[in-house]
């Protein structure tokens, strides 16, 4: 396989796509939001348990491509036990990385957002049509954080 495909589909991504973590609808969750990518029809729902301003549990279900499934899976791992504010800045940092926005990146670097494992998605910025696959779960996550009721789409 060509080198650059592996840059997009890193092992960690393939692993999470095949075996998504935190997949399902936990009974105790108190916030949720649906994400929809109208371009490909992918849909997923993010479920959060927020306790005293801290994300104590995160899960998702739905169906989609390898990038969106892996992104949702890693996201749920990463936001757990973060405060709402920390989780939100992860979202902003992640967004800046996959969109490849220099200004946004610099701004976030100032905030010192440590993306950790999420860095495996840095290859996505080379594939503009796939950026929305990676950000779909995060848009749903941000909506759930805000307690938004309507579905969000990647077109907002």
């Amino acid at each position: 396989m060509t080198f650059d495909l592996r840059e997009l589909y890193q092992e960690v991504i393939l692993d999470h796509a095949k075996q998504p973590r935190n997949f399902g609808h936990p009974p105790g969750c108190n916030r949720q939001a649906k994400g929809h990518n109208p371009l490909c029809g992918d849909r997923l729902t993010v479920y959060l348990t927020i306790d005293d301003g801290v994300v104590t549990d995160a899960a998702f279900d739905g169906a989609g491509c390898a990038i969106s499934m892996a992104s949702a899976s890693l996201m749920t791992e990463m936001v757990k036990n973060k405060t709402e504010a920390e989780a939100h800045s992860l979202f902003k940092g992640f967004h800046a990385m996959v969109v490849g926005d220099q200004a946004e990146n610099a701004e976030n670097a100032g905030d010192g957002v440590d993306l950790g494992k999420l860095a495996v998605f840095s290859g996505v910025r080379e594939y503009p049509v796939r950026v929305k696959c990676a950000t779909l779960p995060w848009h749903a996550f941000a909506a759930a954080l805000k307690g938004k009721q309507e579905d969000v789409t990647t077109e907002e």
Binding site: D4, Y9, C40, G41, D42, G64, C65, A66, Y127, C133
Partner: peptide, 26 residues
């Protein structure tokens, strides 16, 4: 086990242009 979007990306790497999606026929 392979989402059409991922098929599209793999094929694109080979220089092959196909469509992946709902084809405006949901």
């Amino acid at each position: 086990g392979v989402h059409p979007h991922d098929v599209g990306t793999i094929l694109d790497h080979e220089g092959i242009a196909i469509r992946a999606g709902h084809h405006c026929a949901q």
